[in-house]
Simulated assay, not measured.
Amino acid sequence: MKNSRALIMLAMAMVAGLAAVVFASKWLIHTSSSAVTPVAVAIDDVNLGQPLNTNLVRTVNWPTGSVPPGSFTDTKSLEGRVVRTSLARGEPVLESKLAPIGTKGGLSAVIDKGDRAITVRVNDVVGVAGFALPGNYVDVIVNTQAPGGNDQQSISKIVLERILVLAVAQQVSRDDTQPKVVNAVTLQVSPEQAEKLDLARSVGTLSLVLRNQIDGDKLKTAGATKLTLLGAPPAPPPAPAKPARVHYAAGKPPVKRDCVGVLSGVAGSLECF
């Protein structure tokens, strides 16, 4: 009798324990599933201007409380979208990093609305020894002849400030920091800046000046000329004063006159004129 009661109590304890395990596992599964959200991330590195497809992105479980704003939960909604900035492997795909819907791939996808892209020819000196890379900012200097008639002189003047480098040669990636000496640089400019840059390269030679990426100050300069570079030449010494000439009035020569004798009766006279 006592053994049967012990067996019954043991069986009830085992059933209660099994039920507790089942309910606990269900609760943990429900809690864990509700604490994560699927987020689309890049499978591999994605270059700037590259269209996305299902082979480049996948979804991973992300803690619900730390899901990045603008993320995507479905990879199909990213089909054909073009990235405006490079994506690293495992990085979430955000709306702020994508070009507008309908944008085709390529460099045009990364140009800001209202701006233009223009390419200028450079060399190892003009291109800052290859350190002007995509994503950097440069100033543009033109060296030309200052207007001023026949006595023109050379002048170097900053004509454009804080211009974004979109590409060097055919490279648009902004992740590479190694300098590259190229013969062409593509810049992002406004329409007015594009006109100035096109005129500047036709009237003189261009140079690019690399600037700090977080430096947004714009300074007005008068330009550098030979006079400002070397200083004004010393004034020539005054010429010695010449003695004044004294003019002496010479005696007037006698005026020659013609005379005629006039006889009137027995009287005569001499008329001169």
Rank of each mutant, 00 (worst) to 15 (best):
V120L: 03
G204N: 02
E192G: 02
L160H: 15
P92G: 04
V203N: 12
L197Q: 07
T177D: 01
Q188E: 06
A200Y: 04
A129M: 10
G106Q: 06
V159G: 08
I141C: 02
V246F: 04
R162N: 14
L210Q: 03
Q50R: 05
T177P: 01
G105R: 02
V36H: 12
G70E: 04
A244R: 10
E195K: 15
A129K: 12
Q170E: 15
R211C: 08
P254M: 09
V21F: 10
A11P: 07
L28M: 11
A244S: 13
V168T: 14
I155M: 00
T228K: 10
L270S: 13
E161K: 10
Q145N: 12
A194W: 03
P237A: 05
L18F: 13
C259Q: 09
S34I: 04
K97H: 13
K226V: 08
Q178D: 05
C259F: 09
D217F: 10
K26R: 08
S25N: 14
G265M: 00
K113N: 14
G49Y: 03
R84D: 05
I8N: 08
L7T: 13
A167S: 14
S96T: 09
D124S: 09
D139L: 01
G105D: 06
L229C: 08
N150R: 14
V36G: 07
L10Q: 08
T119Q: 10
S66C: 03
G231C: 03
I29W: 08
V125W: 11
V262P: 02
D151E: 15
V83S: 01
D74F: 02
P191S: 07
R121K: 14
A169L: 07
G90M: 03
L87D: 00
F273V: 10
K104E: 12
V122L: 06
A239T: 13
V209G: 00
N212L: 10
D44Y: 09
R58C: 02
S190Q: 01
A13G: 13
G251H: 09
S202F: 06
M9T: 14
N183W: 06
V128A: 08
Y248R: 10
N55Q: 12
G80A: 00
T186R: 06
P147R: 07
V120F: 02
P147Y: 07
T228C: 12
V138L: 03
P236E: 03
T75M: 02
G231T: 06
T144C: 04
L229R: 09
L199V: 11
D44L: 07
V159P: 08
Q145R: 08
D151W: 13
L48Q: 14
W27G: 14
A24K: 12
G106A: 07
Q153C: 00
V122T: 15
L270K: 11
I43Y: 10
S96E: 04
E91I: 02
N123M: 04
R257P: 06
A19R: 06
L208S: 02
W27P: 07
V41I: 11
I158S: 13
R116T: 13
V189L: 07
A249F: 11
V262C: 03
G106N: 08
V203L: 12
L230R: 11
A249E: 12
A239Y: 05
S4G: 10
G80R: 00
W27F: 13
